[in-house]
């Protein structure tokens, strides 16, 4: 299954859109995008997961990295995860570390 990840920046919000299957072979691509997010400036990180069909534990590992990198003052939103991905997040307790929502938060104007 193919995997695609894109990063967009607007004001203090970074939006990462994930597409396909996030597993051990594709997780490094996701991590690369997270590494590009400037920590000081970004207050909200939005992970668009509507088209993410599968997330293995290697993907969850990148989520821990994301949480560590962004720090406690950055809100991490997970938008519209598919049932299987949400199940993985809930089962492993990762849903407690992020904010799971149906719609992306409004982007703050500077």
């Amino acid at each position: 299954m193919a995997f695609d990840v894109t990063l967009e920046m607007e004001n203090t919000t970074a939006t990462i859109t994930l597409n396909g299957a996030l597993d051990a072979s594709t997780a490094p691509k996701f991590k690369e995008e997270i590494e590009k997010v400037p920590t000081g400036k970004v207050k909200t990180l939005v992970l668009m997961m509507e088209d993410l069909e599968y997330m293995a534990s290697a993907g969850l590992r990148v989520l821990i990295y994301t949480k560590q990198k962004m720090g406690a003052h950055t809100d991490i939103y997970v938008v519209k995860p598919q049932e299987m991905v949400l199940e993985t997040l809930v089962k492993t307790g990762f849903d407690q570390s992020v904010i799971v929502v149906d719609n992306p938060p409004k982007i703050e104007k500077v």
């Binding site: 969850l60 821990i64 089962k91 492993t92 307790g93 990762f94 407690q96 570390s97």
Partner: peptide, 10 residues
Amino acid sequence: KPTGPAVGTI
């Protein structure tokens, strides 16, 4: 069912 998060995360 899980009674806590994955071990080593928090």
